[in-house]
């Protein structure tokens, strides 16, 4: 399979998932929170495509609504951490003394395993979708900042940038005209991987009760609800798990494809 086919298939799958998520309220007439005590833990059927959970809620409806949370958190974190990470990385590359301080702080943040830092942040702020986005963004910023810093440091040595500096071009102009064009390709590639990591972290946080509030139908929460019941009704884990897996697979394959297309230097040695 060629790289272009990879990008098209994974991009198409992702687009389909985004559309399903966006249109969920219009496609489905079920409420993801609607309880139905009479129809608990049903197996998949024509009426309930994915079956129902222990409170009689329709799993298909819940999983589609879960896609909204997961994709929204993933996209928001990828966007915000790219923006803030680029800012921090450029700031760090612009001044030697500042660089020493900023990079030590980034090293410190990165010495804390990602999920643990996110757990600690969630523990002090409390569960909400917004807090999950903030916590995971804070975790991801150093990873983007380091990448941007290293690119800017090497770009700055390029003759065309030196020429611009010698010609007296203003700093903001150098950043916009000469540095940003060199940054955006690796940044987009990095952003897709941040997107995937953010979706995993959101699901993991919700799964252990430190993410979105338990009433929110997110994939992590659906999995957490299934924790004591998966042996009786494995579909409760299978469907949200399969959706998360397919979405992550699409984002990762898209990221790999974009990397080879936009930024061949970053590609792993000899990948074809």
């Amino acid at each position: 399979m060629t790289r272009r086919a990879d990008i098209l298939i994974s991009g198409g799958l992702l687009l389909a998932m985004v559309l399903l998520a966006l249109l969920a309220p219009y496609l489905l007439n079920g409420d993801p929170r609607a309880l139905s005590p009479g129809s608990r833990l049903l197996a998949p059927s024509a009426l309930h495509w994915f079956g129902t959970d222990q409170l009689g809620r329709d799993l298909f409806v819940r999983v589609l609504y879960g896609a909204r949370i997961s994709l929204f958190v993933g996209f928001s974190v990828a966007f915000l951490s790219s923006l803030l990470g680029t800012f921090v990385g450029m700031l760090s590359a612009s001044d030697r003394r500042l660089d020493a301080i900023v990079m030590r702080v980034m090293d410190g943040v990165m010495s804390i395993p990602a999920i643990l830092l996110a757990i600690a942040l969630m523990a002090v702020t409390g569960g909400s979708v917004l807090n999950v986005i903030v916590a995971v963004t804070i975790v991801e910023i150093p990873r983007v900042a380091r990448l941007i810093r290293s690119i800017v440091l090497s770009l700055r040595e390029q003759p065309y940038v030196e020429a611009a500096i010698a010609a007296g071009t203003s700093r903001p102009m150098i950043v916009v005209r000469h540095l940003l064009p060199g940054i955006w390709a690796p940044l987009i590639v990095q952003a897709t991987f941040v997107w995937a990591t953010a979706m995993i972290l959101e699901a993991a946080l919700s799964f252990i009760g430190a993410g979105t509030p338990p009433t929110t139908p997110s994939w992590g929460n659906i999995l957490a609800d299934a924790r004591s019941l998966w042996q009786i009704r494995p579909t409760l884990v299978f469907f949200p798990g399969a959706f998360l897996f397919m979405t992550l697979l699409a984002v990762n394959v898209l990221g790999d494809g974009l990397r080879d297309l936009l930024d061949p230097r970053q590609a792993p040695e000899g990948s074809t």
Binding site: A204, L223, W230, G241, L244, F245, L248
Partner: peptide, 18 residues
């Protein structure tokens, strides 16, 4: 590698346990 990166440990855990 691609599958490993796309399968969160807690979901893989359920699949293997099943």
């Amino acid at each position: 590698t691609t599958l490993g990166f796309s399968l969160p440990a807690f979901i893989a855990g359920y699949a293997l346990a099943f």
